[in-house]
């Protein structure tokens, strides 16, 4: 009986003196944060690629992913979702220091500007709606709106990474390379998704997208490797996170999901298409599905192995 009591007492407080996984953003309701961040990456990537390829349907899908999936999941996670407006200026001045506040503001602005961009682009690309001077004015306006929407979507895509990299308490995230990894991964995901959109709507130069996808996938793989190597030498807690990711409990998610499905399979399919000289729709669909699964795995892995440094490092206690 006494043993049980002592053990219970130990368990209560033991967790604070050893490296401890962050759970708030990945376990239980934290799953919603993971989903929201994945859709953030997918939506922003797709929208950005659609802007560069002048694909209206792609832009629409990207915008919808952000507005109908990312935002609701993020809101559903909040303890008090109806108060979300408090994060934005002029209701709060927190944007001066908080990346979350900035992120919400970017997302809301993008939702509005992105919607306007969809309308202006639709008007300029649909025949017989506008002609003459009105069309010229709308084309100029569309260009301006696209530039603003492009900047906002990049900020929307990158803020989650910046938010995480700001946390000194989680050494694995506390590096400037993380937002870049997330942004490039998002663009790679966007290139895959635009091919899926193109299969239904047409108007896509698949060979050009495939070429861009190959380069982005390789850059993405190198960036992930650089990120892991960099944080590996940053601190012991970060090293522990890396080991958890590559040989620990999350290793299956990393090797199968991130590396296998997210990078290797799409890359093999891409090179097969390159050497075969033609694109197989079946293989393309497989590549898109694998790529998207990789996006889910990457975010899961990064969030799951976020580990806090122990609170009481003994070398900081002066011994009497």
């Amino acid at each position: 009986m006494q043993t049980q009591t002592v053990r219970q007492w130990m368990v209560t407080h033991e967790w604070m003196v050893k490296p401890m996984q962050q759970t708030e953003w990945i376990q239980r309701r934290g799953i919603l944060v993971w989903l929201a961040e994945v859709f953030s990456v997918l939506g922003t990537g797709l929208y950005l690629v659609a802007l560069f390829t002048n694909n209206w349907w792609g832009a629409l899908m990207g915008w919808l992913i952000i507005v109908l999936l990312k935002v609701p999941f993020h809101l559903a996670y909040l303890g008090k979702p109806l108060r979300f407006w408090r994060t934005m200026p002029p209701f709060s001045g927190a944007w001066r220091t908080s990346w979350m506040s900035r992120g919400v503001f970017f997302t809301v602005l993008f939702s509005g500007v992105g919607f306007i961009q969809l309308i202006t682009t639709y008007l300029t690309t649909s025949p017989d709606i506008l002609t003459g001077q009105a069309l010229s004015t709308m084309v100029a306006l569309d260009l301006v709106v696209k530039i603003i929407a492009g900047i906002l979507v990049i900020l929307t895509g990158v803020y989650c990474g910046l938010m995480m990299s700001y946390c000194k308490s989680v050494p694995f995230w506390n590096t400037g390379i993380l937002p870049v990894v997330i942004l490039i991964a998002g663009i790679a995901d966007g290139l895959a998704l635009i091919m899926a959109v193109g299969l239904f709507t047409g108007g896509i130069n698949f060979h050009a997208i495939e070429s861009a996808s190959r380069v982005t996938l390789i850059v993405n793989a190198l960036l992930i490797a650089a990120y892991l190597v960099k944080v590996r030498y940053q601190s012991l807690t970060a090293e522990l996170s890396v080991k958890e990711l590559i040989v620990g409990r999350v290793a299956a998610v990393f090797w199968v999901g991130v590396v296998g499905l997210g990078i290797v399979v799409p890359l093999i399919i891409s090179f097969l298409s390159l050497y075969a000289g033609k694109l197989s729709i079946t293989l393309m669909v497989i590549a898109v599905i694998c790529h998207t699964a990789g996006a889910f795995a990457l975010k899961f892995g990064i969030l799951k192995v976020g580990i806090h440094k122990p609170i009481v490092p003994l070398n900081s206690i002066h011994l009497a």
Binding site: E24, G79, K80, C167, I311
Partner: peptide, 13 residues
């Protein structure tokens, strides 16, 4: 708003 960003950012938990 219960975003728990502060919970994660606190180095002392």
């Amino acid at each position: 708003i219960g975003c728990r960003y502060c919970v994660i950012a606190c180095p002392y938990q």
